[in-house]
């Protein structure tokens, strides 16, 4: 067997190996690391690792209360994947996530770009744009449902009556809420674009557009990566705004009485499966949640890997 690096061995910059124990206890920070790391690790295990593992276990069970779960194998996954409402929710959510990702990022970048051009009152604008982000999702959903219905009632309809109203309503709501947040990240990125580069571009006779696309955007790629990651995962995980704005309405009632909630997104579908039905379906909801996790994590990581490649080293 080949010699492998021991878990706690350290390598200095020149690649020379130091004996493990010495290196470990010489440095006081290393000696005391359990004290600093311990609470975080414990909290992380209690708050995340344990519930997460239990969630996976429960997805293989039939249960009413989690304390007396009964192992049944992969039946829940089969049921989850066979559920037409879940598949509808998946495609609807995917569409929503992509559309909101594009619109939010384009608008947030535009606003950020304008507000870094030295306009008078920039700080005031930044605050105003950021504020919607401070309101909770449920409240926002109800407020916007009133705004939309206030307008739509003039046309004898309501946001609850048409799938497309529900979709665009949610997009508008999310843009309104998220643009300010993404804008802050973009502003930070834009302020870090090296002044000498911009100056050099100017001296070389680059137009504003050329400067933007050849200098500024490559330099803010890290911000774009993080903003795209955030808006993609936010789009997929969206729950409270969805619940409060339409709650899945309108429903498509098929012959035979089964229904598809046309504006129900994945997270709401999981919630409704868990609580709206009987104990047999709670395991199914749990299985859906695990599938949901894999999906969001996979997509998020893929997107990160893709945009990371486009980042430039300054």
């Amino acid at each position: 067997m080949k010699k492998t690096t021991p878990a706690y061995s350290t390598q200095d910059d020149f690649g020379k190996k130091k004996p493990l124990q010495l290196a470990f206890f010489k440095n006081p920070i290393r000696r005391w690391f359990p004290l600093f790391l311990g609470p975080v690790v414990i909290a992380f295990v209690i708050g995340f690792v344990w519930p997460f593992l239990q969630g996976i276990w429960l997805s293989l069970c039939k249960f009413k209360l989690i304390s007396d779960a009964q192992f049944i194998g992969f039946g829940n996954y089969a049921k989850a994947l066979a559920d037409p409402a879940f598949r509808h929710a998946f495609w609807y959510t995917a569409l929503f996530a992509v559309v909101s990702l594009v619109i939010i990022n384009v608008l947030a970048f535009t606003v950020a770009y304008l507000l870094t051009q030295g306009i008078k009152g920039s700080n005031l604008y930044r605050t105003v744009f950021f504020m919607p982000n401070l309101i909770g999702g449920i409240v926002l959903g109800y407020i916007w449902s009133m705004i939309f219905d206030g307008i739509l009632s003039h046309f004898g309809t309501s946001i609850l009556l048409e799938t497309k109203f529900g979709f665009w309503g949610l997009i508008i709501l999310m843009c309104w809420q998220q643009i300010g947040y993404m804008m802050i990240i973009y502003i930070a990125g834009l302020q870090n674009v090296p002044g000498d580069m911009l100056e050099a571009a100017k001296i070389d006779g680059a137009t504003k557009m050329q400067t933007l696309f050849k200098v500024t955007i490559p330099n803010v790629m890290p911000s774009i990566t993080i903003c795209m990651f955030l808006s993609l995962t936010n789009g997929f995980k969206l729950f409270d705004q969805n619940l409060a704005l339409t709650g899945g309405q309108p429903f498509l009632i098929q012959a035979g009485g089964t229904t598809i909630k046309t504006t129900e997104m994945l997270a709401l579908n999981i919630y409704n499966t868990f609580y709206g039905t009987n104990s047999a379906s709670q395991g199914v909801a749990q299985a859906k949640a695990v599938i949901f996790f894999i999906l969001v994590a996979g997509l998020g990581l893929a997107q990160l890997a893709y945009t990371r490649k486009r980042e430039v080293q300054q």
Binding site: T157, S158, L160, L161, Q249, P250, F251, I253, G276, T277
Partner: peptide, 19 residues
């Protein structure tokens, strides 16, 4: 049966009818 889901569907149908 399954009272919340049953009623939610009925509400959605009644909304369409009301309009």
């Amino acid at each position: 049966p399954n009272v919340d889901a049953y009623r939610a569907t009925l509400v959605a149908a009644l909304n369409q009818y009301n309009a």
